Simulated assay, not measured.
Amino acid sequence: MSQQRTDQGERSNRGSAAGAAAPGAPWLWLSIAAGVLAVAGSVVGLGVGGFYANLTPAFLPQALAQDVANLALAAPALLVCAILALRGSLRARLVWLGVLAFTVYNYVIYTFSIPFGPLFPVWVAVLGLSLFSLIGGIASTDAGAAAARFGSRPAAVVTGWSLIVVGVLFGLLWLSEDVPALVAGTTPQSVLDLGIPTNPVHILDLAFFLPAVVGTGILLLRRREMAYPVAPAFLVFLILTGVPIMVTPIVQSVRGETAAWTVLAPIGLITVLMLVLLAWLLRTVGSPDGAEARSGAGEPAG
């Protein structure tokens, strides 16, 4: 009987480890510093007239839209989720990982694509802090304990297939521009519009993020434990990625430019779909005690 209680206690401790703040507390605090710096940088970027004066007419609205998205949504979400994760919330931790991925992605673009200026040290600091927070956050998350707390296999299956489909579609979309330009020996139009050597979005997506999104979807369908904490993070990443794209035509309209309203329908649809999937998936996350009960009853994790 004593041994049984010991085993149950060990399973309970393992089930709560993913939601506990202690293992990943240093990375959570680093991300809070990144969030504060991101807010400061976006305030300056939006508030100082002519700060992005060296950008092309096509790039400028995108930069302003990104600052709006950072200031209104991404940075506050990073701060709130980090604080809640410090208090032991697994759901907040999973969302936090996704916001960190989005932050790393965008500050790579800031640091490599926007001309050198007064905010360069701030952007580099946000990139470094968020990158180390993301690496440390993933390493300190107990994937097995997290997987045991997901209580709906249908939600996991739908999420897995959605990640695969969205990842493949965006990959084909970028290749539909890059491959014809390579064959013709020309420069893709998006690169000419941005006035930079290459398109950083295509590089990051094709080299890292889209393969990771598709791979996570496949692993989720195969019930691999490591996919369970990563899948919600990628849903958050895709949601946040859609926000500045939808804000860009609004910025263009405010500035009296021709607004690309046609992007709202497809990007809005994908963003809403990812938001619904995220809400569904997170609702299935139970307490550590519930995960232990399901495991004891012989139900598969997730």
Rank of each mutant, 00 (worst) to 15 (best):
R222E: 09
T141D: 06
N199E: 03
I203H: 12
R149S: 01
A155P: 00
A231S: 12
V230W: 14
H202R: 11
E225V: 05
V179S: 07
A207P: 07
G137A: 13
P200I: 10
I203C: 02
L221N: 12
D205L: 08
S176C: 07
L172N: 08
L129I: 03
S130Y: 01
V179E: 06
I138D: 00
L173E: 14
T141M: 05
V158D: 01
D142M: 05
I135P: 00
R224W: 07
S162E: 02
L172K: 08
L210V: 13
G136Q: 07
A156P: 02
D205V: 06
L173N: 12
G151D: 13
V183E: 14
G128I: 02
A156F: 00
L129Y: 10
G137Q: 06
V168M: 08
T159I: 03
P197L: 05
L172P: 08
F132D: 01
A181M: 04
L206E: 11
L204M: 14
V214P: 06
A145E: 02
L219Y: 02
T141A: 01
P232K: 08
L192H: 09
S140W: 09
L194A: 12
L129H: 10
T159C: 11
L129M: 09
A231K: 12
S130P: 03
G185Q: 07
F208K: 11
G195M: 02
V213W: 12
D193H: 01
A145P: 05
G217R: 10
P211D: 04
L219R: 14
G185S: 09
V213P: 00
I138V: 15
A184M: 11
A146R: 03
I164D: 06
L221M: 08
V214L: 08
T198R: 13
I135T: 03
Y228D: 00
E225T: 11
G144L: 12
R223S: 08
L219K: 13
A146Q: 00
A145K: 01
S190P: 01
L131W: 10
H202C: 00
I196H: 04
P154C: 04
L194P: 04
G160H: 07
L221K: 05
R149I: 04
P188T: 09
P200N: 10
P188E: 06
L204T: 04
S176W: 09
L219C: 15
A212T: 15
L206I: 09
S152W: 03
P211E: 02
E177R: 14
V230I: 15
L220N: 08
E177L: 13
M226P: 00
A231G: 07
V168G: 06
L221H: 06
L192Y: 04
I203L: 14
P197T: 04
N199A: 08
L192F: 06
P180T: 09
P188N: 10
P180N: 12
N199V: 10
A139M: 15
